[in-house]
Nucleic acid binder design. Structure first.
Length: 205
DNA sequence: CGGCTGATCGTG
DNA sequence: ACGATCAGCCGA
């Protein structure tokens, strides 16, 4: 299991680091886990797309100042939960956008009401539903017993792609930054990437 | 307390 | 391409 120190990164480094890692959530219903294939970086008070832009710290966003490697789930559009992981710079985090299902597929299918593995977690709201993640994990430590990361060698060396972040047009120029990252050829992405990022996934601390 | 906005999803 | 649907935030 990966320990707290690996999360001591800014939003961009954390978003890239998470690619290829395995996100695990254990509940009474059982274990569900998937390989992280897509992320986005959110870089604190100077990033117009970030929830804490301009120093807007509210009860919802407090966890972004409470340490690195903490879960920041929140509800969007009144109906979907999305999961961020806090970074080592105050206000920074990375959004987990898509998983390749790995373990607990029947449980994910049950939670999602969807059969095809390709559609179980290919979006930030879908993956939270599939893993049973809701606001109850707010502030949870990602090196804990029920919500944590593992390494999996499967995608080490695969090329990474990047592109504009999704759904943040209101952020103006910041919406154009290539801060969405993913495994270039993964069929489990929420949508295709626009360009090569010029580096590969590396599985190391 | 009421109105508005939105880091989405599913269907058509 | 679009409508569903409501938590969180803001202003009054």
């Amino acid at each position: 299991m990966l320990q707290q120190d690996v999360f001591y990164k800014d939003g961009l480094a954390l978003a890239r680091f998470l690619l290829g890692k395995v996100l695990v959530h254990c509940t009474q219903e059982g274990e569900a886990a998937g390989i992280i294939v897509e992320t986005e970086a959110y870089c604190g008070e100077t990033d117009a797309a970030c929830h804490v832009y301009g120093g807007r710290i509210t009860p919802r966003t407090q966890v972004l100042y409470q340490g690195h490697g903490l879960a920041y789930p929140y509800v969007i559009y009144g109906m979907h939960t999305l999961l961020n992981i806090t970074g080592g710079v105050p206000g920074h985090c990375a959004l987990v956008r898509a998983l390749q299902p790995l373990r607990g597929v029947p449980l994910m299918q049950q939670r999602r009401g969807v059969a095809k593995p390709i559609n179980l977690a290919n979006g930030p709201g879908k993956l939270c539903c599939a893993l049973g993640i809701d606001r109850g994990v707010y502030g949870a430590e990602l090196w804990g017993k029920t919500l944590y990361l593992e390494t999996d060698g499967t995608y080490s060396g695969y090329s990474v792609g990047c592109g504009k972040r999704i759904g943040v047009e209101y952020a103006g120029e910041a919406s154009l930054y290539p801060w969405r990252f993913g495994l270039m050829d993964s069929p489990y992405l929420s949508k295709p990437l626009e360009m090569e990022a010029g580096f590969c996934v590396s599985i190391e601390k």
